[in-house]
């Protein structure tokens, strides 16, 4: 650590909030994989995604937080639930939600977790994020839009083509005309 973290730099309320939300998210995330009901699993996932939005608000990124709610909770999860309800919306516990090889997932999850932790620690170890000025916070939405419509325009267009391809593929798979 080349930078010393002073006690005055730590916002206690923010930290407490972070850990409370993180605990709720962890519980919800475990419930996603442990519940026997597919719709309940989707609803627990909604809680996890809502927790992510709450963390964004704690980090003063309200535009990202609202986008998270709109895109993930408002669109992606609604489509998830929609798909579940159109296919297998049984009430009560499902007996066959667990694959018999589910234990194989544990090492994969652990490895993935390790890689993520390593990457984050390796990239940001000792970095102290500079406190933005009030003006920067007030125009954070402008900064984001300038970013993705300026410097990152090409990746954005590339991503939208990926999504377009996925949509076209889904239509081709789903219907013949």
């Amino acid at each position: 650590m080349n930078a010393l973290l002073l006690a005055a730099d730590v916002n206690v309320a923010q930290n407490i909030g972070f850990y409370i939300i993180a605990a709720i998210m962890l519980y919800a995330a475990f419930s996603v994989v442990s519940t026997k009901n597919v719709v309940h699993a989707a609803l627990w996932l909604v809680v996890v995604l809502g927790g992510v939005a709450a963390q964004y608000i704690l980090a003063a990124a309200e535009f990202v937080a609202v986008s998270q709610v709109m895109v993930y909770i408002g669109a992606v999860m609604v489509l998830f639930l929609f798909g579940i309800m159109l296919t297998r919306a049984s009430i009560g516990a499902d007996t066959d939600v667990n694959n018999k090889d589910w234990k194989l997932g544990i090492p994969v999850g652990l490895v993935f977790f390790g890689v993520l932790v390593y990457t984050v620690v390796d990239a940001f170890e000792g970095t102290v994020i500079v406190e933005p000025s009030a003006a920067q916070i007030a125009s954070s939405t402008t900064l984001i839009s300038d970013g993705y419509l300026g410097d990152y325009l090409i990746p954005l267009i590339a991503l939208s083509f990926v999504l377009l391809a996925a949509a076209v593929g889904a239509i081709v798979l789903a219907r013949k005309d």
């Binding site: 609202v66 709109m70 408002g74 309800m85 919306a89």
Partner: peptide, 26 residues
Amino acid sequence: DPPVGILIVLALSSIGVYGIMLAGWA
């Protein structure tokens, strides 16, 4: 009066969908 005020309207109206959808399923 949050800086993202009008997006909150869209976000809330998309959360409102859950009530209708889950009521029927449940």
